[in-house]
Design a protein around this nucleic acid. Structure first.
Lengths: 131, 131
DNA sequence: CAGGATCCTCTATGATACTG
DNA sequence: CAGTATCATAGAGGATCCTG
């Protein structure tokens, strides 16, 4: 907020603590409950219709799916293609930019699969300790 | 939940779409507004007191910081050390498990620094297009 | 200093109903 | 089918006051 110097110069005084920081904003995006799932779904399938996405991402409401898709489209992470057939048909597909996110996401996935059991143990131990 | 087969065998029917999926739960953790900042702060400084964390993570309320720290402690990502001096002193430090998260996070950071400008452009273009 | 307890206010999100 | 619009609500999160 104070300055626009966000380049990445400061080594210790990390400015990720500002909401302007790109890292922060990325977390705001993929940290979203449905966004990452949508990206992964499209990453696995290549191209899906609205209803197909709704079916795969179980639990998502139509409103949230629409909103999530709009946001991702706005961010240039996916494209929305409307086919004006009788019942309208809309397809969603990752852009190269969106697909490039699959890398970092897979790192998270790898960490999760490797370490979440430890987290679960820690959590159980913690809860146990305070009865 | 059904099985532990999450390895990455299933190509289409990914079970990350269940809230039980470790990937989902990890995102719930680090996607949290303050958790990732806290982890990064401790990653950079090694060990910080409550007040030091509060100072670095600008904008965080005392309530949220406390809550975030408790959650991370419960998950085994950091340790809380109380020194019963006159005014109590409490230090927080990443556990090896918590420190191992710095890797995946740095990948996100790298992606963000490299691609967020493109996202900003896309966003601007999108907003421009719909006046 | 650290943090517990409260109160209060938005915001995110779900449910529902309607439409091109 | 793929949304948009509206209503309602739980809960996140901030502000404030209090204490070991």
């Amino acid at each position: 907020m104070s300055s626009g110097v966000d380049t990445d110069a400061a080594p210790v005084r990390f400015d990720a603590f500002s909401a302007e920081c790109p890292s922060r904003r990325l977390l705001d995006t993929i940290g979203d409950k449905w966004a990452s799932l949508t990206i992964v779904a499209l990453g696995l399938n290549g191209r899906l219709r609205f209803s197909e996405l709704a079916a795969r991402i179980e639990g998502v409401s139509q409103k949230m799916l629409t909103q999530t898709l709009r946001n991702l489209e706005r961010d240039g992470l996916l494209t929305r293609t409307v086919t004006p057939s009788v019942p309208v048909r809309v397809d969603y597909e990752l852009t190269p930019l969106g697909a490039s996110l699959l890398g970092p996401i897979s790192h998270l996935k790898a960490w999760a699969e490797e370490h979440m059991p430890a987290v679960d143990e820690a959590r159980a131990a913690y809860d146990r300790s305070r009865s």
